[in-house]
Write a protein that binds this DNA or RNA. Structure first.
Lengths: 354, 354
DNA sequence: CTGTTAGCGCGTTCAT
DNA sequence: ATGAACGCGCTAACAG
């Protein structure tokens, strides 16, 4: 059941001219008689000629296609970054191929090889939570395929990337909790493999320190981002002799899952325990009470990463990041205060005073 | 800044053998001396040889790649269908390229041409809300590229597809509203271009009819799925002389946006107005009150579509759907009752009694 | 078991 | 203004 496509040879035969002429007419080469060009164009369109990008990329050594690799599709974060990437890339005449890894390292390696085997011109990446070995990324670099990372950036690689101010954002979020009078602030951190985890945790620790609150190791746990674990750990927190009066969660899904546990226990949010998330997922504004969280400029992250990649791809001489510092763009976040930390009336006042 | 890849010729030269032998060794052809094979494999891996799928697909006329085209990424519906597709396709040795159209007809046409120009072996599609012309799809069929539709299926095309029982699901949802005593049931329908819109609307109308409730045209509006319009129309409904006591929304984002309007007006859900959505998006369980909605088996939809596509691609003789009825699989939905129609205690009872 | 050759579709010289 | 010939990387058919 082979597909059947029209080629420039078919067109050439019908018109009794050479395929070179057809090729020239189709690509807008100046040296083609107007009459001939018109005939070619008309026949091509009536035969629904569809150019073969494989053949083209094959001989030209570039495909006008970039890949984007994201770890998951379950929150709205990555899809909206992708929309930003597509905006810019489409305008620049590039096609975007999306690969989604389901947080699996294996998928990531095989998808990377897939993209390389299809000779994409560049790749935008956020790695999985399982990724500890980065050989598949350096392989791309060695092959001269530009990479731009965002959100989850490997610490040991010198590579262009787009990030947000995770440390400050976490610091501010925790400071917000302290300002509203909380002292026993728990932190559900992410996996050690993610640089975000470490930055946000440091922000958490330093905010406590600044305000003279001793860090209680019992109130901090790293976990693997699965819902089941949140439930276990959150229950554990709540059953401590002196349970926390606030929670800073690594991301919104974590915060939302934690809220479920709190509500199931019959505790009140924010009165008994205030909760802050991270990223301002679509659902953060929908849960009850609304989730205080750190908003990330998702579509701008995507657009910025795309623009950085375009620069890399357009560079006449490949940037050698073994000898040169790779560019980093840090975008700003914004703390969104909702009812999970400040009850209704109060929160309205705070927004106004902003 | 051209990328530089190793080819089988490089390997052949180093080993002083012909590229055919290298090719055979690499592809596991039986007629290669063990010694030679080993040498090839070792060199290939130490040089980090990465096969060129372009060249392969180019000469073999198939790419082991399928495309999936979805209209949007804003709800969790399409991403989770995609995860199902990937499951099946990965196991079958296919690569999946995802295209997202932002609900734009133009993007759809250009992405379709993109996929065709890359000679994908098959395509899974849900079309945009703007799509009224289906030539780009029939083009694929004429080229012998199998298509499988899901969710948004063109009515005039005889093409394999995976759908849910939209009509019955809508019927049951509305019947549920009637059972809890509602009579003035409004319906926010989707764009006329979507077959879902028509089926769900018919289910709505027939449920009213069955229960002897006259259809009030003032209570039914079609709209373009943008949040701004929901707000306008919902306000309009609520300001009618005799406003509705229930709303059946075409999908969950619509229902959730409508809930905002209701709450802003100071009305109670479900006491003043009960609300039902469609699809059981992730956020449906998070909003307050929880949204009663029709759950779709998203990942099963994806897996089923993928399996249908595999069958099409594997068919020795291409199925000619101009003369033969295309297969349809209809999957079942399930009405999930939450607090947007039945207050807390009551809804718990109903779940138990199930 | 291995080497040689042809061909996939296209753009691109190099001739004419 | 046009045609002929080549090459991109790989597999397959054919010839040893």
């Amino acid at each position: 059941m082979k597909a059947k496509y029209i080629t420039i040879i078919d067109i050439a035969r019908q018109l009794n001219i050479s395929k070179s002429t057809v090729s020239r007419a189709l690509t807008g080469h100046p040296n083609v008689k107007e009459h001939t060009r018109k005939a070619v164009m008309e026949l091509a369109s009536s035969m629904e000629y569809q150019r073969n990008s494989l053949a083209l990329g094959f001989s030209k050594h570039n495909t006008n296609t970039i890949g984007i690799m994201v770890p998951e599709f379950m929150s709205t974060y990555f899809p909206s970054v992708i929309v930003g990437v597509q905006d810019v890339m489409q305008a620049a005449g590039y096609n975007v191929v999306i690969c989604q890894q389901n947080e699996s390292y294996e998928s990531e390696v095989s998808n990377m090889k897939l993209l390389l085997s299809y000779r994409v011109d560049g790749i935008i990446v956020s790695h999985t939570k399982e990724t500890r070995n980065f050989d598949h990324f350096t392989l791309a670099q060695r092959r001269g395929v530009p990479l731009v990372f965002f959100n989850r950036v490997p610490e040991d690689m010198n590579v262009p990337n787009v990030i947000v101010n995770d440390y400050e954002a976490a610091f501010q979020a925790v400071e917000h909790l302290i300002r509203i009078g909380r002292r026993r602030i728990a932190h559900l951190a992410g996996p050690e493999s993610l640089v975000n985890t470490r930055l946000r945790r440091q922000g958490y620790l330093d905010a406590l320190k600044k305000h003279g609150i001793a860090h209680n190791p019992d109130l901090m746990l790293s976990y693997d981002l699965t819902t089941e674990k949140v439930k276990i750990y959150m229950k554990h927190f709540l059953e401590l002799d002196t349970p926390p009066d606030a929670l800073f969660a690594i991301n919104d899904p974590t915060a939302i899952a934690a809220m479920e546990v709190v509500k199931a226990k019959g505790l009140r949010i924010p009165e008994d325990i205030a909760i802050v998330g991270f990223s301002n997922d679509f659902s953060a504004g929908l849960v009850h009470p609304g989730l205080t969280t750190v908003a990330q400029p998702t579509s701008e992250i995507g657009r910025t990463a795309a623009e950085m990649l375009l620069q890399e791809m357009r560079a006449k001489v490949k940037n050698d990041y073994t000898i040169k510092k790779a560019p980093t763009v840090q975008l700003s976040t914004r703390l969104i205060i909702r009812e999970s930390t400040v009850p209704e009336e109060k929160s309205k006042k705070m927004v106004k005073s902003k």
